[in-house]
Design a protein around this nucleic acid. Structure first.
Length: 903
RNA sequence: GCCGAAGUGGCGGAAUUGGUAGACGCGCUGGACUCAAAAUCCAGUGAUAGCAAUAUCGUGCGGGUUCGAUUCCCGCCUUCGGUACCA
């Protein structure tokens, strides 16, 4: 189990909010479909349904042990047919809608059918992947199956031969956010680009709204920025370059129309459909070979070694603005799935184009004079145009506008907005996911399974290995595939993000069999007020959820534009890795370890750092951690390779149980660094073990006390004693020497009330800011003040039990009962502070002269600033320091200081 | 490379957002209790000088604004995240 930082944080907040009178929905659910369970099934033969049920059971138990107070009657599991019925339903809705870019919302596909039959598609402004234009009469004379092919290009869930990330080892395709550095995020296995017939979601239709609405949510700036970059909006010009001796035009996209006179070559992506059409006879072999090379290069090869490669196609384009003949090349640095898959290359003002031009000896024309803009790089849109015919002398931004206008005027291009965001690949060739509610007829036309027949349940099969032909294990269940006469089922399943893109809505009404969520529940709960999760969801889950939510909003099923109003990324608990130093190049003399205090810091290459199991290390994670004799013996027994190793420390050495010198208490110092908790560093701290040793309350408070929840921080076992001590002290305050509780009705004195209310104020404010570590500090100060008090005054200590309840629910509940409290402490009103107890009747001001403290003085609280100033000017203390100087002004910082400024 | 965040004692981290830097906890030192240990309690704990009161320095480095800067501005350095042939 990962450290439950986020769970604890939200639990504290939800308990606090409940005690403050709010109706809190604090749910928990399980994203139980997906690759990990299925990979486990492939390895062990255990059905994923079975292993996920076991895992969830175990997991719930752990959560329960931590005192996490979830509404378990609202639990959802994405792999439950009662749940995924609605996931399938949302897919069906996506299938049945298209996106109207003028109205800026999703609209039923039947509307599109009407428009097509009355006016064709030329005036339709919709998100689409349709590349031909047809008239109404053409549409009306089409066969149904051809109409369906065209409609498919407009649907928000569409099936198309797309260029995808294929992962051979996992036997499935992956979405862009599931691929990192050319390997799969799960499992880290290689990914190649491949064209496959796949379902996709047209998330790009929502790109602009996904970008714009980021301004309406309370997320960290860095997270919003990640989403912005992932969406990657750019404005530019899409235009046609005629191809010499051909009827074809080459369509390119550029954000720098100003550089059009600097174009010295064109580059096509190796996968570009036009490539094989325009290639000249003498170049066709070379181009074919290059295509072969590029297509087979895996993503990881492409990204890790960026080679400058490419070949000439033998064809030429013509610059439409000045008629210049430009060679067309192909190179893998131009990506097929961004823009048009073709570029105009301007080597003078683009680094990649320049590298390419230099390697292949292509001309470079300088077109921008940047002498007026020192420090300006080729990426900055600034400078004065030169060598550029009619735009010479223009500033870059003006030139961009001018060229766009000119090209549009010629009717060979238009200004265009592009996004890096790609449509989301929605098919997985795996078993353990939601089946598509889709069947195909003989013409391969897709039809939805009627809603009243949902859920379409996963058949119970027992071999989970994906077929090597890129087909899902479901395809082998012929009975299921052909269940409906005259048609076949879709055998791919939906990806993991399908079920997790809307689960938060289901919590509002988890048992509804008639609706995904009732309108009343939506009206009542609205959206997620507070969402806590890891950064790993920055561009995956959070993007898809927002997209689905906006779609459901368009259809009127939800009434908020954004699903997650406020979002906090919790950090991770890291581990401390302890290392000892092995001398390299000592093979002949056997392994030798050297004490960390003796290593030559300027010669670190001489040593290999070997991680040590943290339990063997004394003073682990502290300033001077070390291995003693016992630790070394354990280490030797643990790794046989080092059983006979020699351990050299400051005053001797140790080998095979023999000490070279007299001292028994030797220390072999280690060094440590902070890193991941991982089996390979032998530094995993299991929450269950900590809970078993210290109790859940201590564990919860300690994880919160370590630092702000957004931050990752190392687990430091020693520090937990502080929290443990604090809770013990708090507990002990209530008991007298005989072990009995006797609460006193005696009224508290002013100074006691002051401490209490100061604490309540601090804790209340800190919970609101999620600053739990400082809230805990405040409670510690309280306990330090009262730990020796003889009488336990009710009016002081009962509120304190309530105050600590969100943090330490078990201890608080027990104390509440023992002190005769009614019901549960978690149903009590959280204490409120009263300002009157916070006011200091006297304030001790430091008196400073030019910021330097020269003494202190007590002023009563009812003195005005003017009174204080007058008083200060007459003070003896001041006079002593001010001889011969003029007082310029007196600055009174409320409750802080009085500063006298002198010349 | 680009974008973002952050650098404070031996350590995790506070600092009312321009106002006594280092709260709280760990660790360390000394003391009390104990035959002893553990536990508990008390005191100290940024550096330097001093018996001391106190003084000087001190929030990554170098400058600036200000009576006053961890906080604001300019220029660097380092670390951690994100992202990468996006035209």
């Amino acid at each position: 189990m990962r450290h439950p930082l986020g769970y604890i944080a939200s639990d504290i907040l939800s308990r606090y909010k409940r005690m403050s009178g709010f109706n809190v929905l604090h749910p928990m659910g399980f994203d139980s479909f997906g690759l990990p369970a299925e990979q486990y099934a492939v390895q062990t033969g255990i059905h994923p349904a079975e292993s996920t049920a076991t895992n969830i059971g175990r997991y719930k138990n752990q959560l329960f042990n931590l005192g996490l107070d979830y509404d378990w009657d609202r639990e959802v599991r994405t792999s439950d047919p009662k749940y995924y019925k609605w996931t399938q339903w949302i897919f069906s809705l996506l299938f049945e809608h298209y996106y109207d870019l003028d109205k800026n919302k999703a609209i039923h596909i039947s509307e599109l059918d009407k428009i097509f039959s009355s006016e064709g598609n030329s005036n339709v402004n919709a998100a689409n992947s349709q590349d031909t234009v047809f008239s109404a009469s053409e549409w009306n004379s089409m066969e149904e199956k051809d109409k369906q092919v065209i409609l498919m290009n407009y649907r928000l869930a569409y099936r198309k031969g797309t260029y995808v990330n294929w992962c051979e080892e996992l036997g499935t395709v992956l979405a862009n956010d599931e691929v990192k550095d050319g390997v799969s995020e799960r499992g880290g296995v290689p990914v190649v680009k491949k064209t496959m017939l796949q379902w996709s979601l047209r998330i790009t239709a929502y790109a602009e709204r996904l970008l714009a609405d980021l301004n309406t949510v309370e997320w960290s700036e860095s997270l919003k920025l990640m989403q912005k970059n992932w969406i990657g909006k750019s404005t530019g010009l899409q235009m046609l370059f005629p191809i010499e001796n051909s009827n074809e035009n080459l369509e390119i996209y550029t954000t720098r129309p100003d550089t059009i006179y600097g174009v010295t070559f064109m580059v096509l992506s190796p996968e570009h459909p036009l490539l094989m059409e325009i290639v000249s006879e003498e170049q066709s072999q070379a181009v074919n070979e290059y295509r072969e090379y590029a297509v087979n290069r895996s993503e990881i090869e492409r990204t890790s070694e960026k080679k400058v490669t490419g070949v000439f196609t033998g064809a030429y384009a013509v610059n439409p603005l000045n008629g210049k003949k430009i060679p067309i090349l192909t190179s893998e640095y131009v990506l097929m799935d961004y823009g048009t898959g073709a570029i105009m290359a301007v080597p003078s003002d683009d680094d990649r184009d320049r590298a390419f031009a230099e390697k292949f000896d292509l001309p470079i024309i300088n077109i921008i004079d940047k002498s007026k803009y020192p420090g300006s790089t080729s990426k900055d849109k600034e400078g004065i145009m030169i060598n550029s015919e009619d735009i010479d002398g223009m500033e870059v931004p003006d030139a961009i506008k001018y060229v766009i206008g000119k090209v549009e005027g010629l009717g060979i291009g238009k200004s265009q907005i592009n996004y890096k965001l790609r449509d989301a690949n929605f098919s997985r060739q795996r078993y353990w996911g939601e089946p598509f509610p889709v069947i195909y007829d003989d013409n391969d036309t897709a039809f939805l399974i009627p809603f009243d027949q949902l859920p379409l349940e996963l058949p119970d099969i027992h071999h989970f290995k994906p077929g090597s032909d890129g087909r899902s294990p479901l395809a082998s269940d012929q009975k299921w595939v052909n269940q409906i006469a005259g048609s076949t089922r879709e055998t791919d399943t939906m990806p993991e993000f399908a079920g997790s893109s809307w689960y938060f809505l289901r919590y509002m009404d988890p048992h509804n069999d008639e609706k995904f969520v009732s309108p009343e529940a939506i009206e009542y709960w609205q959206d997620v007020d507070f969402y806590i999760g890891g950064t790993e969801h920055a561009v995956g889950h959070l993007m898809y959820s927002r997209f689905w939510h906006k779609f459901l909003y368009d259809l009127g099923y939800v009434n908020s534009v954004e699903p997650f109003k406020k979002l906090v990324n919790q950090g991770m608990i890291q581990g401390v890795i302890e290392y000892i130093y092995l001398l390299k190049d000592k093979e002949n003399e056997g392994n030798q370890f050297v004490c960390a205090s003796m290593i030559e810091s300027d010669n670190l290459e001489k040593y290999a750092k070997i991680p040590v199991y943290i339990d063997y290390v004394k003073d682990h994670g502290l300033q001077h951690p070390y291995l003693d004799k016992e630790g070394i013996d354990k280490f030797r027994n643990w790794i046989p390779e080092y059983a006979n190793a020699k351990f050299i420390f400051e005053n001797g050495s140790y080998q095979n149980g023999e000490l070279s010198s007299g001292t028994e208490n030797f220390k072999l110092y280690t060094t440590y660094e902070v890193g991941k908790m991982s089996k390979r560093y032998y530094n995993v701290i299991n929450p269950d073990d900590v809970v078993a040793e210290y109790g859940a309350d201590t564990f919860r408070m300690y994880e919160m006390f370590l630092g702000p929840i957004e931050q990752s921080k190392p687990w430091d076992t020693k520090g937990i004693d502080g929290i443990s001590k604090f809770l013990r002290r708090f507990w002990n305050i209530f008991f007298n020497e005989d072990g009995n509780i006797d609460l006193s009705d005696e009224k508290p004195i002013d100074s006691e009330l002051k401490i209490l209310h100061k604490t309540i104020k601090k804790v209340t404010e800190d919970i609101g800011n999620l600053s739990y570590n400082t809230a805990i500090s405040a409670m510690m100060i309280f306990v330090n003040e009262f730990k020796n008090s003889e009488i336990v005054k009710k009016d002081i200590f009962i509120p304190m039990i309530k105050l600590i309840a969100p943090f330490a629910p078990f201890i608080a509940e027990e104390l509440w009962n023992l002190t005769g409290g009614e019901g549960s402490v978690h149903h009590q009103q959280f204490p409120l502070y009263e300002e009157k107890y916070l006011i200091d009747s006297t304030v001790e001001y430091p008196i400073c002269i030019n910021g330097k403290k020269r003494g202190t003085e007590v002023f009563s609280a009812d003195m005005s600033n003017a009174d204080i100033e007058k008083y200060v000017r007459e003070m003896e203390l001041v006079g002593k320091w001010l001889e011969g100087k003029d007082i310029m002004k007196v600055i009174i910082v409320p409750k802080r200081m009085v500063n006298i400024v002198v010349k």
